[in-house]
Design a protein around this nucleic acid. Structure first.
Lengths: 313, 313
DNA sequence: CATTCCATGTAGTGGAATTACAGGAGCGTG
DNA sequence: CACGCTCCTGTAATTCCACTACATGGAATG
């Protein structure tokens, strides 16, 4: 298996090395193990150093790189650098009971970054474009979902409400179904379910479609829900392998919402901007002007204090 | 100014080059501009190639690297590779009206990844540890916040509810205040506000503290809210520079919640695990078993279909 | 037991990064 | 306005490092 399939996220390199272990020659495997044991050491090292650390000769290091599908040591190192920048995915560095807070923090951030890296590589931008068009053509938007996907729905509702068209994300199952039942061909329904198998969401999608609404499905994988949808947005992330793996699909889903919202904002253009900033300025009144506000929140970040518009909408 | 301050996120490299522009010599600046114009070209190139592309001599390229604080060309290229892996932050590649969906998607994902990269570098793990201890010692947890921060509160509530202790995240302002007013020394209140200036959140924090509760403040910068808190968690991300910049602080906040939840789960240990998996299995009943479920959602991902526990809680 | 093939190390080579040095442009000063 | 100094910037030489050709040793197989 070649490790240089660039479509599969920079972070997959270490995983690819692990997978390739059985196919490698004995001494090449020593190199692989040295790299896996301490990727950042391998980054600093040159061929000679990595050879010494692995107790093999220099050509073996080169052969190791070739075996993985790289042109040479340098190109291997570049890819390794990218993998290290993103951090190790959970699959590569499992979370353990005895991890310190530092380790745990690093691992979870790394894993989250990796998930977004994967999602961005796998995103179907044509479908995103279709979704944007559908939203632009709509008169009202309904977001539905439960659990973690419900959080995404709430977030989406907050963002799209700024565009000034009716926009709902009921939490209650019945309300979701009612909203779907009163939808029209002018409605866009965004049905969110990471599994794509949540029965209630499928029901809502089907109901809305019967009413002529355009249904956009957001799932983590190709799933039954998408059969009930006009547009399929698949947000592919690592599987959540065990109970304690943080739920990264949710993050990728939120970024997708950002993409949609930003695209719509761009399409709406400049005149819409004015309304938006007026509204955001109005929100500023909810901020504190108390006496203990002596410590300017931005005192340590001079660049930010000019014309900054906060996001706490 | 040295660009090799490793504490400041891999992605800061291009920003650092931009900042260094005025301090560079004329011909070095040409190199800098070539790199900024097309970072991925610079990645593939060697000294000669980069020199030719910049219309300067090879030593000038080396001097450029030295001027930025690197040992040489190779170490510069490694850092550049890492910056490219993370993608360009918005500050480096602004979103424009004429961006295609592809470009927009790439930019927003890149920007989000960058934000998490920054946040992970800036995270105060000692404070995280203190927060985990406080939560473990508590009998009930209250999450408060509005807008985007309210989304984080909802998400946190979903996660911490799994630990089997009373756990609330009222949306309603009055309910938040009431909950704070009925809190006790056994309560942990997590007050979330990206600006750290939201008056209502500050009020709630103060009220809870008067009642003896332990208050954990989550903000995006050092802010007035933290004065009312026992433990300060600052989730530092890029400022959201303009209206159409996606709100990344929210993502980093969610990852912080993941860190807290995972840490608590680890501390609770194995016996807690059993309850958790029982509960998750019970949730499976909400999934569809319909006839059109012919297309197995996991059909294209064999590894995932074994004993997978879904996250749609 | 012999032979062949494959893995791995040794030694050498080519190329790339780096350094030493010299020419030249710009600027300040007499 | 001219002279000289300083600081760039390119040329040429050097050193280091990745990579290749080849040889040796061991394992597997007949």
């Amino acid at each position: 298996m070649s490790a240089s399939r660039d479509s599969s996220g920079y972070s997959q390199l270490l995983q690819a090395i692990s997978n390739a272990l059985p196919d490698l020659r004995n001494s090449e495997r020593k190199v692989a193990e040295t790299v896996l044991a301490d990727p950042s050491f391998a980054l600093e090292a040159n061929v000679a150093g990595l050879a010494r650390a692995s107790n093999v000769s220099e050509p073996t290091v080169i052969r190791f790189c070739s075996a993985l599908g790289f042109d040479g040591f340098s190109s291997f190192k570049l890819r390794l650098a990218q993998a290290v920048a993103l951090g190790l995915p959970i699959s590569q560095s499992a979370i353990g009971i005895d991890d310190t807070i530092d380790e745990l923090t690093a691992k979870i951030f790394d894993h989250s970054i990796n998930a977004l890296d994967q999602a961005r590589k796998a995103m179907d931008t044509a479908a995103v474009g279709a979704a944007v068009q559908a939203i632009l053509a709509s008169r009202e938007i309904l977001f539905v979902g439960f659990g973690a996907s419900g959080i995404i729905a709430q977030d989406a509702q907050q963002k799209f409400a700024l565009f000034g068209r009716p926009c709902a994300a009921p939490i209650d199952l019945h309300q979701q179904y009612i909203a779907a039942s009163t939808s029209s061909p002018d409605t866009v329904v965004v049905a969110i379910s990471n599994t794509g198998t949540t029965a209630a969401v499928i029901d809502v999608a089907r109901r809305a479609r019967e009413r002529g609404a355009t249904v956009i499905g957001v799932t983590g994988t190709s799933a039954p829900l998408l059969a009930e949808c006009d547009i399929s947005l698949i947000v592919r992330t690592d599987e959540d392998t065990d109970l304690h793996t943080p739920t990264v699909s949710r993050l990728a889903g939120l970024v997708l919402i950002d993409v949609l919202a930003t695209s719509v904002a761009m399409a709406l253009g400049v005149d819409h901007l004015h309304n938006l900033s007026t509204m955001k300025e109005a929100l500023a009144q909810f901020r504190s002007n108390e006496s203990e506000t002596k410590t300017d929140p931005d005192i340590d970040r001079p660049a930010a204090s000019v014309g900054r518009i906060q996001e706490e909408q």
